[in-house]
Nucleic acid binder design. Structure first.
Length: 180
DNA sequence: TGAGTGATTTTCT
DNA sequence: GAAAATCACTCAG
C-alpha cells in the first residue's frame, strides 16, 4: 500500500478499500463501509473550492482529512485525487476490542465502529490528525488479502446529490452503520 | 425491530 | 444566520 494506491479515481479507491485493515495505534479492524466524494460533487466539502476548513482535502493522496460533523462528531476521510476523498463509515473491529469498548461505553461489538462518528470515537481519531499521512504513524493500512463481495448504494445523511450510488459496503457484513 | 426526533457547534455565505 | 458526510434515545407495532 503506497501513495499511488490513492492517486486514482476516488470511486475506484473506495471500492478497493473494502476489506482493507485499518489500525490507529494498533487499534482498528477491517473496512466494511466507505463513501466516495469528488470535487465535482455537490455534497462534497471540496465542491466550492479550497477553504481553511477543507485544505487537507486538497493535499497529497494518502493524507487524512478529519472534520467535525454536526458540531459533535469526527469523520475520517482518506484523500485521493486532488479535491476528492473516501469517507470511512464503518469497520469490523478486530484489534483492540477492549479499548474500543471502553471508549465507546457500549458492549455490542457490531456497533463499535458502525458510523463515522462512532468509528472515530472507538479509534480515538480527532481533528489533531487532520493532514497526517495514512501511510505513516500512528496509522496502519494493509491491502485486503482477499477482495470481499461488495455492494453499492445511496449515500447517507446528505441532501445534495444524494442520488449518486457512491456508498460501498462489504456485502452481508453485520458491522454496517445501516444495511445496504 | 424499525422509524422518528432532538441535540449541538463549526464553518461558510 | 443557516446548513451540515450523525448519534442515541424513545415510542409504536
Amino acid at each position: 500500500m503506497d501513495e499511488r494506491f490513492f492517486a486514482r479515481d476516488v470511486v475506484a479507491v473506495a471500492v478497493d478499500l473494502l476489506g482493507a485493515r485499518l489500525l490507529v495505534s494498533g487499534i482498528g479492524g477491517l473496512i466494511v463501509e466507505t463513501e466516495a466524494y469528488r470535487q465535482d460533487d455537490e455534497a462534497s466539502h471540496s465542491f466550492r473550492g479550497q477553504t481553511a476548513g477543507n485544505a487537507a482535502m486538497f493535499g497529497k493522496p494518502g493524507r487524512v482529512y478529519v472534520y467535525r460533523s454536526y458540531g459533535l462528531h469526527w469523520c475520517f476521510n482518506i484523500v485521493c485525487e486532488r479535491g476528492s476523498a473516501v469517507l470511512i463509515r464503518a469497520l469490523e473491529p478486530t484489534h483492540g476490542l477492549e479499548t474500543m469498548t471502553a471508549r465507546r461505553a457500549i458492549g455490542e461489538a457490531r456497533k463499535l465502529c458502525a458510523g463515522p462518528g462512532n468509528l472515530c470515537k472507538a479509534l480515538a481519531i480527532t481533528g489533531d490528525m487532520n493532514g497526517l499521512s495514512v501511510l505513516a504513524d500512528p496509522f496502519s493500512l494493509e491491502a485486503p488479502s482477499e477482495v470481499p463481495a461488495s455492494a453499492s448504494g445511496v449515500r447517507i445523511g446528505i441532501s445534495k446529490a444524494a442520488e449518486r450510488p457512491w456508498r460501498f459496503a462489504v456485502k452481508g457484513s453485520r458491522y454496517l452503520s445501516r444495511l445496504i
